[in-house]
Nucleic acid binder design. Structure first.
Length: 138
DNA sequence: ATTCTAACA
DNA sequence: TGTTAGCA
C-alpha cells in the first residue's frame, strides 16, 4: 500500500530481506504498531533502517515477533523474553548439542510449562466462578 | 500516506 | 499502551 516502501515494485523475494514496515508487521502479528516499536526499542528485535530512518523488518523478524507474542500472555518480562530469544538463537545456529545450551533449553521448557500450569489453574478457577454465578440464575 | 521521536488532559 | 504533536 505504501508508495514509499523501499524495493516494493519488482524485487525478488530474497529469503530474509528486511522489507516490511512497522504497520504491516503490526497487522501481521496482531500487535499495535506502538507495541512493535516498543519491543524493537527494547532490543528484542534487530530491525534494519531505511534511508528515511523507517524500521524495516524481515520474515525472520516477524517470526521473532510471533515468538514474543506467545510469551507475552505467559507473563514473561522483557528481560526474560530477551533471554529465551537468545537461547533460541543459539539453538537455531549451533543446535542444542552443547550441554550447557541443552540445559538452558530445558530450563526454558520447564519455565514455560510452569507458566502454562499456572494459567490452567486460573482457567479452572474461572470455571468454578462461572458455575457459582450460573447457580444463582433463576 | 506512513513512520519517526518524545512526551503526557 | 494509547495518543498526540510536529517532522521528514
Amino acid at each position: 500500500m505504501s508508495a514509499l516502501r523501499p524495493g516494493e515494485p519488482g524485487e525478488l523475494p530474497a529469503p530474509d530481506k528486511a522489507v516490511y514496515q512497522v504497520g504491516e508487521v503490526a497487522e501481521r502479528v496482531r500487535l499495535s504498531h506502538r507495541t512493535v516499536r516498543y519491543y524493537d526499542d527494547q532490543g528484542l528485535l534487530s530491525a534494519a533502517r531505511s534511508a528515511g530512518n523507517y524500521r524495516l523488518y524481515s520474515e525472520s523478524d516477524i517470526e521473532r515477533m510471533l515468538t514474543i507474542r506467545r510469551m507475552k500472555p505467559l507473563g514473561f518480562s522483557l528481560d526474560e523474553m530477551r533471554h529465551v530469544l537468545g537461547v533460541l538463537d543459539r539453538v537455531d545456529r549451533e543446535s542444542a548439542r552443547a550441554p550447557e545450551l541443552e540445559l538452558e533449553l530445558r530450563r526454558a521448557i520447564d519455565d514455560v510449562r510452569e507458566r502454562r500450569d499456572e494459567l490452567a489453574e486460573k482457567v479452572a478457577g474461572a470455571d468454578d466462578f462461572l458455575a457459582a454465578l450460573r447457580a444463582r440464575l433463576p
